[in-house]
Design a protein around this nucleic acid. Sequence first.
DNA 1: TTATGGTGGGGACAAATGTCCTTTTTAGTA
DNA 2: TACTAAAAAGGACATTTGTCCCCACCATAA
Lengths: 191, 191
Amino acid sequence: MIRTNPELTSYVKKLFVSGLYEIVEEKFPSKHRIIEQDRRYNKVYFITEGITKCYISDENGREFIQEFLGDGMEFGELEVFSKKYTICSVESITPLKVLSISHSGFNELLETDSHFNRLIMKALADKIRYKAPRHSYQHSYPIEDNIIQLKKVFPEFTEVISKRDIANYIGVTVRSLNRALKELKTKTDLY
Amino acid sequence: MIRTNPELTSYVKKLFVSGLYEIVEEKFPSKHRIIEQDRRYNKVYFITEGITKCYISDENGREFIQEFLGDGMEFGELEVFSKKYTICSVESITPLKVLSISHSGFNELLETDSHFNRLIMKALADKIRYKAPRHSYQHSYPIEDNIIQLKKVFPEFTEVISKRDIANYIGVTVRSLNRALKELKTKTDLY
DNA sequence: TTATGGTGGGGACAAATGTCCTTTTTAGTA
DNA sequence: TACTAAAAAGGACATTTGTCCCCACCATAA
């Protein structure tokens, strides 16, 4: 549920401490919107500590959470390749530490550092791999099954992430989420 | 709705005719399953003619269509980066022509041809960009709105693609799709 | 202390969608 | 031509989910 990329985080940290590139460390408090949908930015971020939510919001104010990003996950990179507006907002859920690098610095690394190039390529591929089954599962199964799935991969999710965010992640209303949670509890209480 | 990538198709064709790489042209009839979910393959494919559907199927036989792939779209590439099983099946909807290349050949190109590298990177980024709003839209809006959206980008979709595939693409049953289509017609007939 | 706003929880009803089944249409083939 | 299988369309009913409320709890600011 909260995605991570240990290999990437350790490599980018190494690049950072080498001092050879213009990589900057930044900190944000929780609930801070680091990038906002439909804008342009000139930086790519790598999370080194904390959790963010990456979400799309529509004209009616509804949010749909794409992913929860944890250690080693990057954001802002898609806009390097297709020079368009951002499609997601990214907001910190906990206090956050990131390493950031400009588009030009990012491009330079991609061209000169083949290991870095490979790691980014793999990170992109993993984002695709991960999204596909998740959305298909959410479409095909009732809310309850989705919660069971979540509990499997991340048992303490209710403590870290608000109900609203969980609902927006599964793609249902908070009401429906509560209903499903209650159902689940009465079912498990039987045993 | 049917994704394409003209830049990539023209570049891969150029590589093919140059004869410098082990790129092979293959043809398939319609309804042929070119790759199957949960298997291993050793090739990357680029579509040069025709349309395929890329879908996930679950244990109950339900299909969820991820994308319709047209000219220039690649598949089988994700497994180069994370050496795991395929997550999708890909099946031709029309007669199909592809150019295929082995994983090792693909890797070699990525390392030696920086233009190719960039095109693949962008193709991956675009797949992510494209998926995000689509799934969020489908979750948040009723079927009818989804159909209206489809008509906008691809007015003749009902002629090319079967009802079942369209339903599996939107993530609803055929019954619901028909209901929505009928509603839409009676509404537009009023004017 | 008293407001106040955010979050969690849930009742009652409405709307959307799924399930199951039947009929019609179409395309292909013996 | 007639037969068959698959696709398209839709009726009737069940289930799921959403919408619109209200209430309780808790932190915090006035």
